[in-house]
Design a protein around this nucleic acid. Structure first.
Length: 565
RNA sequence: CGGGGUAUAGCGCAGCUUGGUAGCGCGCGCGUCUGGGGGACGUGAGGUCGCAAGUUCGAAUCUUGCUACUCCGACCA
């Protein structure tokens, strides 16, 4: 490709709307342009990268036994009614009507369609196991699109689905996919970690997320410093403190200060206090709303996913209103404490291990000191409801927890029979009886990977693409070609040879000054520049510059082609 | 959806407080010089100041309403 024919579209200045580095560089290097919130046009350079990522994903999923298919993006709402997700999925699901007023949705994922397909196509256990996948545009009406293509509303996703008669077989395919995912991210040269994950709205039993480590990531990942253990903080278990809880040594005493003031004004260690949160509990139909108290050590944070997963607590997690708080405790939420509450009290393991602790007194601006669970608070339910923090013992039993930020680029699930049952997806088994299938599903955010790769590979000059996904392998940068017939001829000849050899080459044939060309190619992250100038032509040499290492070297013109064999 | 911010040329911004000829830098066109790191000089093109209504002799500027974008929280590949 010649730059004179190419939509280069680089920007010297950073657009004000871009916050994270990958978004800034994607705009500056001319990879994408914004159309509306969360919607992006891919320009030639961006599309080249996107296609390369897509192809690596495709190759590895095919190698893992996947059959590529393509399902419609527009799906009948009936299908989602059948699986029960039409109501469950919420406003993220974009709903639309056709000219006959029939209800449709824009596909955020394809469990329904694929399960229906397989239910129709497969009759016998002999056809199992089966894995199908597609690489296709998804639409999710995100509450807050941000960070460019990192969280767009429309995005390119690889979604694979596997079908099995028995769970053991699903386990095997799950492992094959897990390995395929590792190979994909290794080929992309990304610094990634598979982590134990919550299954979220897709549902199911076992799940791993694949995270690219980057400070701009939106998830917290908990790692062990001594083993392979890694989990999304949503799912990382906080172990109960070891040893026996201390015996009460103090009498309970009321202090005329709220907890917050007490911590600020005295030597009181926040780790000897507990905080109490009131949330909405689950109720049977017709019952009045129920409130549940959650108690955590003062320095710990509530893990909302863990709380939601408890049977007593309504999902999504909802905090009690000020009115509900005063109805139950006759005080502000800042003076709540577990002693004397009439609602169910769920206490985090660490809070439950305290003795002689300090808490709110359920009376405005008053606290208790010297409180003890058994003696003062009666029946409590002990659960793991907090976020792990750096320094906690790892739940795997080895080492301590470290926390890093990650970008979720892949997620694999063992779905089990949830969708197969709802969509009546079954085959005849060896005994000639109908048997419902069990399923796995495996997603990769293809467009998000492009942004994640930039987050991990850039410097002050621009993008430093991993080799496998650079938009061009090499750029030819002639010095003052307009004035030097020799430079022009050398550049043209080399360009033709590279094209012949099937090398992805960008020939910068613009009448630009060298600085402009260098800046553009460094911004775009082309891994190798071949610089052709009068200076070296007498010796029949050209200069090579490596974008990643910054190394420059001279090489004989005749040896350039050998670099690409 | 809640809470902030912004909207003036392709991009980055000033002007608005105190109403009166729409500006700067980059980019873009043309010309000359220059030619190994976003060069210089000259000369041009490009804007119904987000939209609508109001106040006023007069609105980018004041008032009201709307819309879009964006940042912080809940959702997720």
């Amino acid at each position: 490709m010649r730059t004179s024919q190419y939509l280069l579209s680089t920007l010297k200045e950073t657009p004000a709307s871009a916050e994270v580095i990958s978004h800034q560089l994607m705009l500056r290097a001319g990879l994408v342009r914004n159309l509306a919130s969360g919607l992006y046009t891919w320009l030639p350079t961006g599309l080249r990268v996107l296609k390369k990522v897509e192809n690596i994903v495709r190759e590895e999923i095919q190698r893992a036994g996947g059959n590529e298919i393509l399902m419609p993006m527009v799906q009948p709402a009936d299908l989602w009614q059948e699986s029960g997700r039409l109501d469950d999925y919420g406003p993220e699901l974009l709903r639309l009507k056709d000219r006959h007023q029939r209800d449709f949705i824009l596909g955020p994922t394809h469990e329904e369609v694929v399960t229906k397909l397989v239910a129709n196509e497969l009759n016998s256990y002999k056809q199992l196991p089966l894995t199908v996948f597609q690489i296709q545009t998804k639409f999710r009406d995100e509450i807050r699109p941000r960070f460019g293509v990192m969280r767009g509303r429309e995005f390119l996703m690889k979604d694979a689905y596997s079908f099995h008669l028995e769970d053991e077989c699903l386990e095997k395919t799950y492992q094959i996919m897990f390995d395929a995912y590792c190979r994909i991210f290794e080929r992309l040269e990304l610094n990634f970690r598979p982590v134990i994950a919550d299954t979220g709205s897709i549902g199911g039993e076992k799940s791993h997320e694949f995270h690219v480590l980057a400070d701009s990531g939106e998830d917290d990942i908990a790692f062990s410093d001594a083993s392979d253990f890694a989990a999304n903080i949503e799912k990382a278990e906080a172990l109960a403190p070891t040893g026996e809880r201390g015996e009460p040594t103090q009498d309970i005493e009321k202090v005329a200060l709220k907890l917050e003031r007490l911590i600020k004004t005295s030597e009181l260690d926040v780790k000897t206090t507990v905080k109490t949160l009131l949330v909405v509990g689950t109720t049977e139909e017709g019952e009045p709303e129920k409130i549940v108290a959650l108690v955590l050590r003062g320095d710990h944070q509530l893990n909302e996913v863990k709380a939601e997963n408890l049977a007593q607590i309504a999902s999504p997690l909802t905090f009690a209103t000020d009115e509900q708080v005063s109805a139950i405790a006759n005080c502000h939420s800042t003076s709540l404490g577990p002693k004397g509450l009439t609602v169910e009290v769920i206490v985090d393991r660490s809070a439950a291990h305290l003795s002689d602790f300090v808490c709110g007194a359920n009376e405005n601006n008053h606290s208790f000191t010297g409180v003890n669970w058994q003696r003062d608070c009666g029946e409590i339910n002990i659960q793991d409801i907090r976020n792990v923090v750096a320094g906690d013992p790892s739940p795997c039993g080895q080492g301590t927890i470290e926390i890093k930020r990650g970008i979720e680029v892949g997620h694999i699930f063992q779905l089990g029979r949830k969708y197969a049952e709802a969509m009546k997806c079954s085959v005849l088994n060896e005994g000639g009886k109908n048997q419902t299938l069990t399923m796995g599903c495996y997603g990769i955010g293809v467009s998000r990977i492009v942004a994640a790769a930039i987050e991990q590979n850039h410097d002050k000059y621009g993008i430093k693409w991993p080799k496998a996904i650079a938009p061009f392998q090499v750029a030819i940068v002639p010095m003052n070609m307009a004035k030097s017939a020799r430079v022009k001829e050398t550049a043209e000849t080399l360009y033709e040879s590279l094209l012949q050899a099937g090398v992805e080459v960008l020939f910068d044939d613009r009448k630009e000054r060298p600085g402009v060309m260098f800046a553009d190619h460094e911004l775009m992250g082309t891994p190798l520049l071949v610089i052709i100038g009068e200076r070296n032509l007498d010796a029949q040499q050209v200069e090579l510059k490596n974008r990643i290492t910054g190394e420059k070297s001279l090489i004989a013109i005749d040896d350039v082609m050998a670099l690409f064999n």
